Simulated assay, not measured.
Amino acid sequence: MNKIGLFFGTETGTTRLVAKKIHKLLGDELADKPVNVNRISPDEMLRYDSLILGTPSYGVAEIPGRSAGCLEPNWEEFLAQMGNADLSGKRIALFGLGAQERYADRFAGSLIRLYQALAERGAEIVGSWSTDGYVFEHSPSVVGGRFVGLVIDQRTQGMLTDQRIEAWLEQIKPLLLERTAKAA
């Protein structure tokens, strides 16, 4: 597939909102419209070589899904359907949501779980993000001093969302397009 696939899990709709902002900046020529993972099969996602995937934070650093308290299927159920699918050759950028003031001790904790699940299946993860400008005590999603993907706090830093998305896309777009060019 020679476009970037854009998929998300959501419970309240905020992750969907961020995915739509990302799509608007990339445009229809570079990325397909964002789709909730509870509306597709793994095969539909796996046809892309470059992906942007988004997750809310739910539970205590849990993958969002019914066992974490979500009312609708989310990443937990999608990954279960995916099984041990081989993601070698897939280049994936991740974004996650969190509330740094409310959950300062586990800020954006679900992002690391999605990262781990994809890396274990052989995906190449790109798009780590600086922790500068965030105020929190701990995040399991910080590896080597950086978040494993873009982190958005719509609750307390919503005014920074667009700026953060734009800067992150400048970083990841060439990497994702390089992979889509090889697939074309």
Rank of each mutant, 00 (worst) to 15 (best):
M159Q: 15
E166Q: 13
D162M: 10
W168H: 03
D162L: 11
L176R: 00
E166D: 12
I165Y: 04
I165V: 15
D153H: 03
R164P: 02
D153Q: 08
T161A: 14
Q157C: 01
K173Y: 06
Q163D: 15
G158Y: 04
R179A: 14
L175N: 01
Q157Y: 00
R164T: 02
T161P: 05
P174C: 09
Q157I: 09
L160M: 13
K173N: 01
R155K: 14
R164A: 12
E166A: 15
D153N: 08
T156C: 06
T180W: 06
Q163S: 15
W168T: 07
Q171K: 13
T156N: 14
I152W: 00
M159F: 14
A167S: 15
L169S: 02
V151M: 09
T156S: 12
D153C: 10
M159P: 03
Q157A: 09
I165G: 06
E170R: 13
L175P: 03
T156W: 08
P174H: 10
T161H: 04
M159A: 14
L169M: 07
R179Y: 00
R155D: 14
I165S: 03
E178C: 01
T156G: 03
W168L: 07
R164E: 01
L169I: 00
I172Q: 00
E178Q: 14
I165R: 03
T180K: 10
R155S: 03
Q154F: 05
E166C: 02
Q163H: 13
L169Q: 02
D162I: 01
L176T: 05
P174D: 10
G158P: 06
E178I: 04
A167D: 11
P174T: 09
I165L: 09
Q163Y: 12
I152N: 05
T156R: 08
R164D: 01
L177Y: 05
Q157S: 11
L176C: 08
K173H: 07
K173V: 12
E178R: 13
T161D: 10
M159K: 12
T161Q: 11
Q171L: 14
V151F: 03
Q157V: 05
E170Q: 13
T161G: 09
T180V: 14
T161V: 14
D162Q: 11
E166L: 11
E166M: 08
Q163I: 12
L177C: 11
P174M: 09
T180A: 08
Q171C: 04
T180D: 04
I152Y: 01
I165W: 06
I165H: 07
L169R: 04
Q163A: 15
P174G: 07
E178H: 10
